[in-house]
Simulated scan of single mutants.
Amino acid sequence: MTHENDDVNEAIAGELALMDPAVRASRALFEPLLDPEFVEVGSSGRRYTYEDMPAWLPDHQGGSPGGPRYEPSAITGVVLAPGLVHLTFETHVDGRRTRRSSLWRRRSEETGWRMYYHQGTPVPPGTE
């Protein structure tokens, strides 16, 4: 069970890093955290791929050190299979709440854990 906890904790560390404005603003820091087959369905409903991220991520919300920051809560994870972790959590940023789900994949020890898939779903105001 300890190995599974380590895997979940490493995926959580990667998730938190991707919310850090310094990481979001640096291609050299965020690219190693994204799987080459990465896909995101953002809270806007738009679809993004690994190739889209270098242009999109630094200028997107949460990418500016002085701007609004993602405030994550209730991050939990489960190992679905060896090398595959599923995380769920919520974020609050600039008055908006979003439920999030991501899959983290580790293909090798050298590459480490990388985000393979991410989806954000806005929570309507007044919803528990």
Rank of each mutant, 00 (worst) to 15 (best):
M1L: 10
M1S: 11
T2W: 08
H3Q: 15
E4I: 00
E4D: 15
N5R: 14
N5C: 08
D7V: 00
D7I: 00
D7G: 00
V8E: 08
N9Y: 06
A11M: 05
G14E: 01
E15Q: 09
L16D: 06
L16G: 02
A17Q: 12
L18N: 10
M19P: 02
D20A: 00
D20C: 01
P21A: 03
P21M: 06
V23E: 08
A25N: 13
A25F: 07
A25D: 11
S26I: 08
S26D: 15
R27Y: 10
A28V: 11
L29D: 15
F30S: 10
P32I: 06
P32G: 06
D35M: 03
D35I: 01
P36I: 03
P36Y: 06
E37V: 03
E37N: 14
F38R: 10
F38T: 06
E40W: 03
V41Q: 07
V41W: 05
G42C: 10
S43A: 09
S43D: 09
S44L: 03
R47K: 11
Y48A: 14
T49C: 05
T49V: 00
E51C: 08
E51A: 15
D52E: 05
M53H: 05
M53K: 12
A55P: 05
A55F: 01
A55S: 13
A55I: 04
L57A: 08
P58T: 04
P58Q: 13
P58K: 12
Q61W: 13
G63C: 05
G63I: 02
P65L: 00
P65I: 00
G66D: 14
G66I: 00
G67D: 04
G67N: 05
G67W: 01
G67Y: 01
P68I: 00
R69C: 03
Y70D: 05
E71T: 09
P72R: 08
S73Q: 14
A74M: 12
A74K: 15
I75Y: 06
I75W: 04
T76N: 12
G77P: 11
G77M: 12
G77S: 13
V78F: 08
L80I: 03
A81H: 09
A81F: 02
G83H: 07
H86N: 13
H86R: 15
L87C: 01
T88Q: 12
T88E: 11
F89V: 04
E90N: 09
E90D: 12
T91V: 12
T91A: 00
T91N: 11
H92E: 14
H92R: 12
V93K: 04
V93P: 01
G95T: 09
R96V: 10
R96L: 12
R96G: 07
R96T: 11
R99A: 11
S102Y: 04
L103F: 09
L103D: 05
W104I: 00
R107W: 06
R107M: 07
S108G: 08
S108I: 01
E109G: 09
T111M: 10
T111Q: 15
G112P: 10
G112R: 09
G112W: 07
W113N: 01
R114I: 00
M115L: 08
M115D: 02
Y116R: 12
Y117S: 08
T121Q: 04
P122N: 07
V123Q: 09
P125M: 06
T127C: 06
E128S: 13
E128M: 11
E128V: 11
E128F: 11
E128L: 13
